[in-house]
């Protein structure tokens, strides 16, 4: 029986768009592939994979890949937030703001190598690698444990290198 309703809201791919990016598309896709495998392992979780917007520069491959307990959804974020018990985000962008505003139970992780986030962003956990992120995600969904402020690996990113 499916019990835990999890919503995953991904970041968009950038393709050849003119602009700066924090993730390289393929690197992000590889991470998502791992995350997808992780979701499939826990088949008692009812996972919703939020679809990318039409304006995304790259076609969303996950609309073809989602299967079993992982369902692809192109419904609005607001309607998905209403249904979800646990929301997982892997980047601090607008959906995170939506989660905060909507009072959702969310976990947001970013990787150490991702620059361009200011230090001490509230609600965001900096993790070393994919294993760390998945471990936190498991704790979050399985036991509703969110990392306390002491456990958050803040300031590990070398902010001093940033200009200004």
């Amino acid at each position: 029986m499916l019990s835990k309703k999890v919503l995953y809201v991904p970041l968009t791919y950038s393709g050849d768009s003119v602009g700066f990016r924090t993730w390289k598309d393929m690197g992000y896709y590889d991470w998502q592939d791992r995350l997808f495998g992780f979701f499939l392992e826990y088949d008692s979780w009812d996972v919703t994979w939020k679809g990318l917007p039409r304006s995304c520069h790259v076609e969303d491959p996950w609309q073809y890949k989602c299967k079993r307990n992982v369902k692809y959804s192109s419904a609005s974020l607001v309607s998905e937030l209403k249904k979800a018990e646990y929301v997982y985000l892997d980047f601090a962008s607008t959906p995170l703001l939506d989660c905060v505003k909507a009072g959702s139970n969310f976990l947001c992780t970013i990787f150490e190598g991702q620059k361009y986030l200011r230090p001490n962003v509230p609600g965001v956990v900096v993790v070393k690698d994919a294993s760390d992120a998945l471990e936190l995600l498991f704790d979050f969904v399985a036991a509703n444990i969110k990392p306390s402020i002491d456990e958050i690996v803040l300031n590990k990113v070398d902010w001093k290198k940033e200009i200004l």
């Binding site: 679809g51 917007p53 995304c56």
Partner: peptide, 26 residues
């Protein structure tokens, strides 16, 4: 090609992510 042409944008991907819903939140 400065921006991707319409062919590239005209994908099967879903509608723009909740544009109308997000704006009031912002």
């Amino acid at each position: 090609v400065f921006r991707a042409d319409n062919e590239l944008f005209d994908r099967l991907t879903p509608r723009f992510r909740d544009r109308a819903y997000i704006r009031p939140v912002l």
